[in-house]
Design a protein around this nucleic acid. Structure first.
Lengths: 196, 196
DNA sequence: GTAATTTCTTGCCATTTGGCAAGGGCCAGT
DNA sequence: ACTGGCCCTTGCCAAATGGCAAGAAATTAC
């Protein structure tokens, strides 16, 4: 079945049985995005809880000086979502844009709440997604504070190489908290060190 | 009633009525901590969902080089908790330690789940606490990436001055991602600029 | 009250990173 | 095929921050 990846994602939490996962997955609707299309624009309220099957998205804001700052990447097998806007029903600060063609499965806020109400196991699952988001962000923060720019780049290279294949350097740079010229030099340095 | 601050915290989400908040608050038990006492030690599983009435706590880890890194501060009026350990029932990576004498109200994991099950409005509230945690951390991350050390210090000074009153400089420094000597210089500079 | 410990500051210099601008390569649209 | 626009790199120098060590100040322990 085409929803297999979504079902496996629901099961990955260890909080529900396969039949339960299949039934929940049945509620999701297909969603595709072409490269450069926006899943969400700043100022709008997010209404799609999207599980990304394949493709790559990035989240970004415009900072005070008008520069783009990439706040996150979402790759296949994960939920691609601006939690704050979706759950609080408030206008998003962020844009979510496809870096490559994307395909996935979504449910709306109303559907999600109905499912939370009806299915305790899905409730638990929803909580675990939020907690995972917190854990990821926390470890990124710790990495940001304790590691040099070079180490942060190498760590991204190890854990999320697909990002570096599809995202332009400047997006990766602002995500890592360095300028694009610095990242270019870091990358040049890494290549040289690795090649010797 | 002494639980008033907790009740007001429950109400702050706008997700329940006063009688509901009062009844939920009644389930919490009092908790005090003396300065330097640990609410949670790394390696143990957190089992107290603590609302902090007054006092100040800090969360910290030991990084690869054996240095303390402060990952967060918790002040009165907020939940002081290591979400990952509490919700996933896994050993904590972090220590939570009182910087001043503290007092608050807690419920255990079992109690919290029973309440989530029995009271949909408390479930929603629990979710909103998680989402707030994510928002806070995200904005800290953005601040870390886009602002200089000086700006980060000044922003902390504005939004959480109580931290600077009670936490030693080195803890604040690692929280802000600078060395303690740099923070000392930043502070000297700010004083001078402000005083002129 | 005194000694021990921790905390904070400061000087000196090294390292890391940023800012700017120029140039080359590559891709997309016509 | 041409052309304009990104994308990436690189040189030059400036600015920000770190590392280390010494000493003053404050706090804590006995």
């Amino acid at each position: 079945m085409e929803r297999e990846k979504l079902i496996r994602f629901l099961l990955s939490s260890g909080l529900m049985s396969r039949p339960q996962a299949e039934e929940i997955a049945g509620q999701f609707q297909p969603r595709t995005l072409e490269r450069n299309a926006f899943l969400l624009q700043a100022g709008r309220v997010s209404d799609e809880y999207l599980f990304l099957d394949r493709g790559l998205l990035r989240a970004f804001v415009h900072d005070a000086d008008g520069n783009d700052v990439t706040t996150g990447f979402f790759s296949g097998g994960h939920v691609a979502l601006e939690f704050a806007s979706f759950f609080n029903r408030t206008p998003s600060q962020e844009h979510l844009q496809a870096l490559t063609d994307c395909a996935g499965w979504f449910i709306t806020y109303a559907q999600l709440n109905a499912l939370f109400h009806a299915r305790p196991e899905f409730r638990e699952f929803g909580r675990s997604v939020l907690v995972r988001g917190l854990i990821t962000l926390k470890s990124r923060m710790l990495n940001q504070i304790t590691e040099t720019a070079t180490a942060r780049y190498e760590s991204l290279l190890k854990t999320n190489p697909e990002i570096l294949l599809h995202a332009p350097l400047k997006h990766v740079a602002s995500y890592l908290g360095v300028t694009d010229s610095s990242l270019s030099r870091i990358r040049a340095g890494a290549k040289e060190a690795g090649g010797t």
